[in-house]
């Protein structure tokens, strides 16, 4: 990546080269954004190989529609949105996000300060990956991407009530599992997490 950077000093130069269809620019974009985009895809598609396929489809779509990018927002945000759309398309094809699994009611609330300092992004990713696909999709769209319930309902062709109920269940499940992690971490270190 360092070898290619001198050719594109700014992001606009990189995008101009992408619009010309230069393979050098395509490689540079992949090297720069593939990690983050893979994280996005893994959040929606738990299976890694499926997530890689979704990411490849996303990059193909981004390279093919680069002329539609107006450079009004950030290129990373535009690319992330494409990846989310591709992931939703994959889920729509598999219909797996419609599954509803009953989750036990929340018993204890986790310590968020401890989770913020002690847990890494990969730990949270792994936790999200354990969510049932329907809950995971709605939680990702609402909590991480910032979609509203109306947008989620429109995107997934469900009602807003369904979106709200599934988000609530996803939160309960995550809180319960965070509390469980906290307990396991305390037992491993011989201390109890401070509330």
């Amino acid at each position: 990546m360092v070898r290619l950077l001198p050719f594109f000093q700014s992001e606009s130069q990189l995008i101009t080269a992408l619009k010309r269809g230069e393979s050098r620019a395509q490689k540079l974009v992949y090297d720069r954004y593939s990690g983050k985009m893979m994280a996005v895809c893994v959040r929606y598609v738990a299976n890694r190989s499926d997530a890689e396929e979704v990411m490849i489809d996303g990059f193909m779509r981004a390279y093919g529609r680069i002329a539609q990018f107006r450079e009004e927002g950030s290129f990373e945000g535009w690319l992330r949105r494409i990846m989310v759309t591709e992931s939703l398309m994959f889920l729509r094809r598999t219909k797996s996000w419609r599954q509803e699994i009953p989750i036990d009611e929340l018993t204890t609330e986790p310590d968020y300060a401890w989770a913020d300092t002690s847990l890494e992004a990969n730990d949270l990713l792994r936790l999200v990956g354990q969510l049932p696909e329907g809950y995971r999709t709605i939680f990702n769209l609402y909590a991480v991407e910032g979609y509203s319930h109306a947008e989620i309902a429109d995107e997934l062709s469900i009602s807003e009530g369904t979106s709200k109920s599934q988000l609530s269940r996803a939160r309960n499940w995550l809180q319960a599992n965070l509390a469980k992690l906290e307990r396991e971490y305390g037992q491993a270190n011989g201390t109890t997490a401070v509330r």
Binding site: K36, R43, D116, E120, L124, V128
Partner: peptide, 10 residues
């Protein structure tokens, strides 16, 4: 989750 996952990289 937003804070942590925004910067996540796989």
């Amino acid at each position: 989750f937003r804070r942590k996952l925004d910067e996540a990289s796989v």
